[in-house]
Design a protein around this nucleic acid. Structure first.
Lengths: 219, 219
DNA sequence: ATTCTAACGGAACATACGTTCTATGTCAAG
DNA sequence: CTTGACATAGAACGTATGTTCCGTTAGAAT
């Protein structure tokens, strides 16, 4: 083998080991690797595993069942697993109340209530907070009851941002894409079949944050 | 034992299993657990492991060495950040095509795109694949152009599951909550203001997978 | 053509490993 | 005091598991 270049068989072995370990919670045995990759001899699997150790993709512990460990080099080469960011849930978002903004007070949820999101999914990690949507009132924002929205404060919002807006006269929170149009503000539903709301007096609304991510879990 | 309350021995076992798994990259064997916790009999370790499974802290695979998996409940109780699960993106979901299903072949290593999701957000980690939504045709499913849907194959779907259905006569994919009603099938949009589709002949549809998570990134 | 190295493959082996069985002990409930 | 459920413990067993040995093959280098 050319040093630094993996054979096709070795690459298939790594791929299998990485997937198997993720799916099962434990590494595969020599025989499981052989079966998956089409190698009938445990000594050939053993030989190739040792080559992968030499190349730095795996560690092995001797005389131990499933004694295979993925190395950082391997994880990087499959596309480094993303860091996890922990975002506090500060409460729920209702149509009839302003967004509960993060503060130093005890949040509605327990102090430890949080959602964990991979870093790749987030455009920023500064000043994020999460809210759980209650009710059907956000459906024009394509956001369901039970969805989690990750937001950040938006002192400087831009046209097209999806924001949580508190409409003072209606005493209502809504999620909309916001656009400044002259002296007015246009609130555009995410659902393309719905029409916008034009706010003649921007003093009537309060932009409480902008949405950076929506997560919907289904069972 | 009082249900829901762990004995001291069981708590020490969990603590050891979690630490050992982190340090070594693989779970401990029955005998390693026994040695660490001071239990000389493999059947006592086995008995207590089964109690921990009953309480939801562990999963076990039968007749497999180191066939112990930490559950989400355990990881939460030790306050540990969620694992990251890498889910292959197998393509895009269009209204006018069937869902591109994951191939049984091993992919060329590193070739596919993937999305990384924290384990907490997922009800299962088996057999997941991800698709990016193209077009506005899924808006009745509350799913936007550009959203990522995480799915799994659904040989046994249940009433209420959100599934990707290929409608043969219309040559169209749609995402709907599915219900079996006698000999017919009801496809219910996620948007509560929209009416259902009744499928008189279930042979006309093909359930291609069920949705377990929707992720929407906004910039 | 020959030699050398890498890779392969089957077989054997010893130990690791999880499961099962049987017996005993503890303690709460009646 | 008795009973039953839970927990313990040792032993046995069959299978899983990794390592080692020996021989073969393929291809590059000479």
């Amino acid at each position: 083998m050319v040093k630094g270049k993996l054979s096709e068989r070795q690459r298939r072995m790594l791929d299998f080991i990485e997937k198997f370990s993720n799916d099962s919670g434990y590494p595969p045995s020599i025989r499981e690797i052989g079966k998956a990759v089409g190698i009938s001899s445990t000594s050939v699997v053993n030989y190739n595993l040792n080559r992968l150790v030499d190349e730095g993709y795996l560690d092995r512990d001797q005389n131990v069942s499933r004694g295979i460990r993925l190395t950082e080099k391997l994880l990087k080469s499959v596309g480094k697993l993303s860091d996890v960011i922990r975002i506090r849930k500060v409460g729920r978002i209702f149509a009839s109340e302003p967004v509960p903004l993060p503060s130093t007070d005890s949040p509605i949820f327990g102090a430890d209530e949080a959602i964990e999101i991979t870093r790749d999914l987030l455009s920023t990690t500064d000043g994020l907070f999460a809210l759980e949507v209650k009710g059907d009132s956000m459906i024009d924002a394509m956001v369901n009851d039970g969805d989690v929205v990750v937001m950040k404060l938006a002192p400087d919002w831009h046209n097209g941002d999806m924001v949580a807006v508190w409409l003072k006269d209606k005493e209502e929170t809504t999620l909309k894409h916001i656009y400044r149009e002259g002296a007015k503000v246009r609130l555009q539903p995410a659902n393309p079949t719905m029409g916008p709301i034009i706010i003649d007096d921007p003093e009537n609304l309060e932009v409480q944050g902008k949405v950076v991510l929506v997560v919907r879990q289904l069972n």
